[in-house]
């Protein structure tokens, strides 16, 4: 495990294969909560937090109990693979609840800042998506790599949604054709952002 490998994973998931702009994950909040920069940034922080925690916990469950029970009972570590999806979504839902309770009790100011976004995060596909990719990819089979992947994914999401919110704050003053107002123009802008991000391809290899 070297630093270069970790850096490559980080850059890969945050820029080159940005979860939102080239992986199409977390599009709902990307379109829905990107009207104002401070809201978008708050959502991004909440997602980064939950994605890192869930990424590590699901990694631990797959490599710990699931493989262990599968091996002990059926003699094949992969024999319980059919429970993965159900487990992942349950872990994410309970992580979100835990994080919410924890923040409410110990960091009330943080809770008021992004507490409203937490319930929305359960159905944010960026979280489940990152957990699934961690499970599928070969380079994230070490705990540290998985944690870096999840954290980088969260930061990439924060960056994309914050840039989008910055642009949308300015679009309010533009004369957008009526049918394109709202979702239409947001998607077109996202398309251009995605084009800009394709410029990162090849970095980190």
């Amino acid at each position: 495990m070297n630093l270069g490998e970790l850096a490559a994973i980080f850059i890969g998931v945050a820029l080159v294969n940005n979860l939102v702009l080239s992986g199409f994950l977390g599009i709902c909040p990307f379109l829905g909560v990107s009207r104002k920069v401070d809201m978008a940034f708050g959502m991004g922080c909440a997602v980064t937090f939950v994605i890192t925690v869930s990424g590590v916990v699901t990694w631990a469950i797959v490599h710990g109990p699931l493989n262990w029970v599968g091996n002990a009972v059926f003699g094949d570590p992969n024999s319980l693979a059919f429970l993965k999806y159900v487990t992942f979504i349950m872990v994410i839902a309970s992580m979100v609840q835990l994080v919410e309770m924890y923040l409410k009790k110990f960091f009330p100011s943080l809770y008021t800042a992004f507490g409203v976004f937490l319930p929305l995060i359960t159905t944010n596909c960026a979280i489940l998506g990152a957990c699934l990719y961690i499970d599928m990819k070969e380079e994230t089979q070490h705990l540290l790599n998985a944690a870096v992947y999840a954290f980088g994914g969260g930061l990439g999401f924060t960056m994309a949604i914050t840039i989008m919110a910055g642009i949308r704050e300015h679009i309010r003053f533009s004369d957008v054709p009526k049918p394109l107002r709202g979702a239409g123009i947001t998607l077109l802008v996202a398309g251009m952002l995605a084009m800009a991000f394709t410029g990162f391809t090849g970095i980190g290899k």
Partner: peptide
Amino acid sequence: LPPGAFLTLGVVVGVVNH
């Protein structure tokens, strides 16, 4: 590629709104 997805959906949503 990914950008084409955003652009196409943006235009289709615009047409439907219209």
